[in-house]
Design a protein around this nucleic acid. Structure first.
Lengths: 194, 194, 194, 194
DNA sequence: GGATAACCGAGACGGTACGTCTTGTCTTCAT
DNA sequence: ATGAAGACAAGACGTACCGTCTCGGTTATCC
């Protein structure tokens, strides 16, 4: 019962190559063969550790983006939300990430593992952090105790992803602010109370 | 200037076949060859009229779904929004549509024509109808005159699409109601005023 | 029920490329990919018309070698046999053919179609011609009427192939003559009787 | 000068596994990995002692078949030859051996070591024994003193291998007898003299 | 109402990526 | 310091789908 001793070199080379290639040509034009060529890792090895192209990309994506979407703790719910959501919007607007994420979400409809990876690896950590932010605000009295944190978060991030999907409106700090204001007003935490 | 004498038979046969095949196997497993086989239309003909698989599917999708997402006119903004959004949520939750739409949105990142088709053919008509509903509500005094209709609509549909994407929460009538309530409270049209 | 209209260009390009590559690198190093690259024909097309590498090579081989192994008609059985067998020996000793044939015969053990192709396409035509030569000799009185033509032919070609297989002896005109002499002496058609 | 302390266990396990697998699936489907799996010997060890698949198989083949093709000494050349050749024909007709041998001979065109191994390990011992048999016959006066032993042997074994290669005729005792008769008649040792 | 295009179906084609397989080398770990 | 386990690079395999193309055959206008 020996743990497979996967080669760290090959592993990171694949993820790096995938990240680069997605940036250069977009997810749609990403090819496992190209990843192999760029990384110097053989196809057999790639397929030993990942079931398909999407799995490689989620792993690369989660690894690279994880750190830089932490919530600030400004003492004001409004500021916290606007800060994080603006950072997220900026990240998603960058050439590689937004498009890749949407494409992955599209594929995830036919790929249960991918869907799980995205929910657990991308969505859930952010959401957990968001719930904590909301809880802090409740403790500070900015929101009523019976507020539904998930509804608040959906209210903020929903419009953000919607605009990412259809691209029908911008996502600068101003737009994000107005979204957050509308949500906070709607759930009893009007920003004037900040 | 000769009008292309596009064969109506071939045209609808292709769209029908595409719809069926998407329902049966999902968009991801849809193949132009399969569409040809099912419809009895040749590849040459298919490619004469559509540039690629996605274009066929958007057309089939827009044609089939267009009618059944009209807004009711109940005299109450809240009722109108809840009614339409619930219907939309139900449609998107059905096996074929939701997945297909997300997949198409994913591909649209690399396909400007597809993106345009989705925005103009799917998003914009619904949004125009939605703006009209909001305008009616303003006329009735349910909302302040300076309300930003698009922000309201993003507030309602954003969470809906977000849950479609990640599947982290349900989309029954109750959930939709709570979403709509939060938005209306947030933009000065509290539902108590309904 | 339309006959598949295979492209003559692609067909001959594949056979030519296969012949060249076998000559250059030997059958053992022959690759379908290389045939495709050399011929400019796609893999799909190659596999549409041939089940595997061996089938391509037999066809190329049969087509190219067929003509130049006809029997002479010298009026003497001994001369006819020596002439043809020497020509065959020379052909088999050439870089490509002998090795390829042996390799194909090896693979034919696991490939019934290949075995049939070799028997019907290579062995049988030669053998039929050989039987005719023997029959002529019987008519001329060089051999008794009850001679077993196949046994005679095996007696001539058996040693020839054996030396091809193990390479333990040469196959010049002299060696072939001595083989033929021994066979004819053995079957009642001693060459002194010629 | 350190004697490689070749593990007897590993060595015989590999040869046994190779023999079994050839019998079960044929040489064409034999895999080094399968030999390792079956024998419990690691690939590193296998490749330490044999350069490739063919080398393993020749060794296994030579070891297993060597004993049972000895020449009888009946006092009659004809009987000796018919006896040995019939035994050989039976051995070659068995599922594993004939096919394997032909396949190896095919590969030997590209593998000088393999060719040498087959000639020295398979062909030459048999031929040496055969020459001795012929020499005995000369001593007994069954054949003229100037007979070419190799030509006689090629006359007997040539047709045998030819039929093995193309499978165009049977190889029972009767057929072998007629082959031997023809050869002996042809080289001055008519079987009536037996 | 016969000519003449554009259309149609069928399906072969070059191309490209897929995911699998086997080879022979190299590394790691346990003995 | 040997050998089993097995990861690795290389690269061929045979399959699938794409989008283009060439075929004949069939409409369906326009003279």
């Amino acid at each position: 019962m020996s743990t497979p001793r996967r080669s760290a070199r090959a592993h990171t080379a694949v993820l790096d190559a995938a990240s680069q290639l997605v940036l250069e040509h977009g997810y749609g034009r990403l090819t496992v063969d190209a990843i192999c060529a760029r990384s110097g890792v053989s196809k057999a090895t790639v397929y030993r550790w990942w079931p398909n192209r999407a799995a490689i990309v989620v792993e690369a994506l989660l690894e690279s983006v994880q750190p830089d979407v932490a919530y600030p703790d400004t003492g004001s719910l409004r500021e916290d939300l606007v800060g994080q959501a603006t950072a997220l919007a900026r990240a998603l607007a960058a050439p590689g990430l937004g498009g890749t994420l949407v494409a992955l979400l599209g594929e995830a409809r036919d790929d249960r593992d991918l869907a799980t990876a995205l929910r657990n690896g991308w969505q859930e950590p952010r959401r957990a952090a968001g719930r904590e932010v909301v809880r802090r605000a409740v403790r500070r009295g900015e929101l009523p105790a019976d507020v539904d944190a998930d509804l608040v978060l959906d209210g903020v991030y929903g419009p953000l992803y919607l605009r990412l999907l259809f691209g029908h409106a911008g996502l600068g700090r101003d737009e994000v602010q107005r979204i957050v204001d509308q949500v906070l007003d709607g759930c009893g935490g009007g920003h004037r109370a900040g």
